[in-house]
Design a protein around this nucleic acid. Structure first.
Length: 282
DNA sequence: CAGAATACCTGCGGGC
DNA sequence: TGCCCGCAGGTATTCT
């Protein structure tokens, strides 16, 4: 469910309903997520007014005077805004009540998500301190990418999915960006040319911006306050389309597995990397 | 040290 | 219909 654009969509969807509002209560039905919820979370948040809601990578940051709630949606997490007394389901683990009448509900079947609290600057929290630049910021550029790639021989797809290199890029968008940039996902990161780095940076920004734009249309779901999640529908060019024709050249799309993650690419548009030949002399 | 495998959970679709 | 298997948008932790 949540890659960077969906987290951004979630943020935009819930923000107008809860910013400046005061937390009156919490209902915790399931405290066991990736890590157990803080024991005293209700006490920490009670009577706290939401001062700011921001995003860092795939983490949502809810700032209060006492500190910051750090929330990650994991693989299957969702947040939605509901009216009080809305019926809850099996995986609706946490309800945060604002002004007695609005519920911010956290739903997560797989419970890979996380909810943490820090009294300090969240950006120095161990989970956030090592995250790379935001892909849509100016600091994420080809100079940065080629500099970081120099030391790494691993597949470019794994490289750009490393949050220490870039914040928030997941399997779908890594796959899509490599297709757009016409780079084979297995190409070693330090074998990319300067031009390829430039193309890849541009492709990442393009695909994320477009996805966020499309996610914007789902904001209506949040406004309905009816418990429906914000769907994120978009036109994926290659992800999940293995065996189907490449949208550019119509050759059948290939699938492979890179460090456990399914990867789709076009063998014609994304030519296989040159294999390095080991010679006796060198 | 880089990079790969593993672990955490539930649900779903396909094959039998 | 039901069981078993593999797979799923993430990432910290453990291993080699």
């Amino acid at each position: 469910m949540p890659e960077l654009p969906e987290v951004e969509t979630t943020l935009k969807g819930i923000k107008p309903f809860i910013l400046g509002q005061k937390i009156t209560n919490l209902i915790i039905r399931q405290p066991r997520l990736r890590w157990d919820l803080p024991q005293n979370l209700t006490k920490l948040l009670q009577n706290q007014t939401l001062q700011a809601l921001t995003r860092r990578g795939k983490y949502l940051l809810f700032r209060f005077s006492a500190g910051t709630l750090i929330l990650h949606l994991g693989m299957s997490g969702r947040l939605c805004v509901l009216k009080k007394d809305s019926p809850y389901g099996k995986h609706d683990h946490v309800d945060i009540f604002f002004n007695h009448l609005t519920i911010l509900r956290y739903t997560d079947p797989r419970r890979f998500g996380a909810i943490l609290f820090t009294p300090n600057n969240p950006l120095v929290h161990p989970l956030l301190s090592k995250i790379g630049p935001e892909p849509l910021s100016r600091t994420f550029n080809s100079t940065y990418l080629s500099k970081r790639a120099k030391r790494h021989r691993l597949a470019i797809k794994s490289f750009i999915m490393d949050s220490k290199i870039i914040a928030g890029l997941g399997n779908i968008y890594a796959t899509e960006a490599l297709f757009i940039a016409r780079i084979h996902p297995l190409k070693p990161a330090n074998d990319l040319s300067k031009q390829e780095h430039t193309n890849l940076v541009r492709a990442i920004k393009t695909v994320l911006k477009l996805a966020i734009k499309k996610g914007g249309t789902t904001l209506r779901d949040f406004k309905q306050s009816d418990g429906k999640p914000g769907y994120f529908r978009m036109e994926l060019q290659v992800y999940g389309r293995q065996g189907k024709p490449c949208p550019r050249c119509h050759v059948s799309l290939q699938q492979l597995r890179i460090t456990g993650r399914s990867t789709v690419y076009c063998k014609q548009c994304q030519p296989a990397p040159q294999k390095k030949v080991q010679t006796k002399e060198s």
